[in-house]
Design a protein around this nucleic acid. Structure first.
Lengths: 124, 124
DNA sequence: CATGTCACTTGTTAATTGCAAGTAACAATC
DNA sequence: GATTGTTACTTGCAATTAACAAGTGACATG
């Protein structure tokens, strides 16, 4: 019964450069990790929390909300009593695959201790 | 004559996932915009400051320092008296091109008002 | 020698993050 | 049916980070 802010957390646009626009949505340490998990098939709140990097729960909730606002993710109930929701990528969200894959390639090549876990290819 | 912290601002590693590793270096709203400018041929402090998004000067200085620490950028003097430095991408840095290009593609396709400015291809 | 420019640094305030704890809705166990 | 547990969050608060303004040092120009 209290909705502090229901939207419009970012109405100011830095520029029309697609990179700036993308960073306004995805440019932080956690959001793309959630997208990674979604791409790898994780669907449920607890699954995201359980990932190795241990995302704080409030940040997970906020990021999911943002991804939903931007139509990268949809939330839908997969059971009633007790009501439980699942999160899945939209088409738009799935198309972030190439961005993630480019990052994985760069990381594997240039960051010493890094080893991939993302499945090879999982397109639409 | 005071070096508050000379390095080691992030010795804790979240995970070995390349995406997490990349986000630990580049995961914020500004760093990849600096890389974008470097890829587009900008070299000098003032040029980065002058970009449309108007990065704050202290953040630019810190991000350049970080990119240098991670060997994505090198700083070298291009003139003496008055001494002036230029920043250029290393090979490692240039290889971020595909990541940026994937972002541009996604942004242009999925974010309404976004229009690209990054040059088509500029490989090594 | 006064003013200006470039490349930063410092200080102060505002916003965001991270951690811990709490809550609502049930389910299962005692 | 009271207690404990699970899931999916929300809330509070300290700590980190970002944003804006102003300052600094090394010169160059007039």
């Amino acid at each position: 019964m209290s909705k502090k802010k229901l939207s419009g957390h970012k109405e100011f646009i830095r520029s029309r450069c697609p990179i700036a626009c993308v960073l306004d949505i995805l440019g932080d340490k956690w959001t793309l990790l959630v997208v990674r998990d979604l791409l790898s098939g994780k669907k449920i709140y607890g699954e995201f929390l359980a990932s190795f990097e241990k995302i704080p729960t409030n940040i997970l909730a906020e990021r999911l909300k943002r991804l939903i606002e931007h139509e990268i993710v949809v939330k839908s109930p997969y059971q009633e009593r007790p009501i439980r929701y699942e999160y899945v990528l939209t088409h738009k969200g799935k198309e972030l695959g190439p961005v993630l894959r480019a990052m994985v390639q760069w990381g594997e090549k240039h960051i010493p201790g890094s080893k991939a876990m993302l499945k090879p290819t999982e397109n639409d």
